[in-house]
């Protein structure tokens, strides 16, 4: 082959070390300028929430733009938020509802997913197709009939009514089934030969190995139900049963009017648990969202 000289354009030949440096630096500058501008937009409500929650009313209501409070009023605002409305009660309700939902979801979904992944039984295909179809149905669709049924049964305004539509997570079944399918059959066979019952195999062999999927699903489930407003708004009218979003809405509407100091204090208290958990378990959170992929 003819050995041609390398083709070099004029601009390539003239790159000096200094120009290369400047080129790199300007690039970095614009990248960070853009990202930081976005970060300010994202953080603005959080920062303002924290700052306002320690401001006295006269500063909140002054039309002047001031960042840091002249007078620390945090104790009063948080005190008011915790006493005037049962904010801690809201948080506790959130914990109860989220835990209840998650536990039942796991208890129901894991054996079902195992059966779908590893066992032969009549109706297996039908069940799986139903699961796939149900994946498309958001809670707002069956909400109406379920509400009517709960009303007939006199079960409105109970923890049970808040949790029951979510006891079955078709998404959990789907996720765990995918995970279990890659579990080696040989280990299950070995466990059967060792005399383990199918029940023990599910809970003592297969489930521990699915820990990443379970953690991801838990993150997904807790974030979804801690923050859910639609369903509690429908079935709960007793404020003592309200989970955080409903409680926040009630607090914003009724108690405080425009007492923004107390309002932001309440918002801080109700947002904090998930945000703090996120800061400590960032990897798990991000994995959870990535793995689950849908919201």
């Amino acid at each position: 082959m003819q050995a041609t000289l390398p083709t070099r354009t004029a601009s390539e030949g003239e790159v000096s070390p200094a120009a290369a440096m400047i080129r790199r630096m300007t690039g970095l500058f614009f990248v960070h300028a853009f990202l930081l501008a976005g970060a300010v937009f994202i953080l603005l409500p959080f920062v303002w929430m924290l700052v306002t929650s320690i401001k006295p009313p006269e500063e909140v209501f002054s039309a002047e733009l001031s960042f840091w409070p002249d007078r620390f009023y945090g104790l009063e605002n948080y005190g008011f938020a915790l006493t005037a409305a049962p904010v801690l009660r809201f948080a506790l309700n959130g914990v109860i509802v989220c835990t209840g939902i998650l536990v039942v979801q796991l208890l129901i979904a894991i054996p079902c997913a195992y059966a779908l992944a590893k066992l032969q039984f009549p109706g297996r295909h039908l069940l799986f197709i139903l699961v796939l179809l149900a994946l498309c149905i958001p809670i707002q669709v069956p909400a109406l009939p379920i509400y009517v049924a709960l009303a007939w049964l006199g079960l409105l305004n109970t923890y049970f009514s808040m949790m029951v539509p979510f006891f079955l997570s078709v998404f959990g079944i789907f996720l765990f089934r995918q995970f279990f399918r890659s579990f080696p059959d040989d280990i299950i066979h070995a466990a059967r030969l060792d005399g383990m019952s199918e029940f023990e195999i599910v809970w003592r062999i297969v489930t521990p190995s699915a820990w990443p999927a379970i953690a991801a699903f838990s993150v997904f489930s807790i974030v979804a139900h801690w923050n859910d407003l639609y369903w509690p708004l429908i079935v709960i009218s007793d404020i003592n049963l309200a989970p955080p979003p409903l409680g926040m809405m009630y607090f914003a509407d009724a108690e405080t009017g425009s007492n923004y100091g107390a309002l932001t204090a309440a918002a801080t208290v109700l947002t904090a648990p998930l945000v703090v958990t996120f800061l400590f378990a960032r990897r798990r959170f991000i994995e959870g969202i990535t793995m689950t992929g849908v919201k």
Binding site: F46, L229, L246, A267, T268, L270, T271, V275, F278, I289
Partner: peptide, 19 residues
């Protein structure tokens, strides 16, 4: 940047809507 941009996903939207 990951933490900052992800923060709204974990926060309670109702509370943040009030803010």
């Amino acid at each position: 940047y990951e933490i900052v941009y992800f923060l709204p996903v974990t926060s309670t939207l109702i509370a943040m809507a009030t803010v």
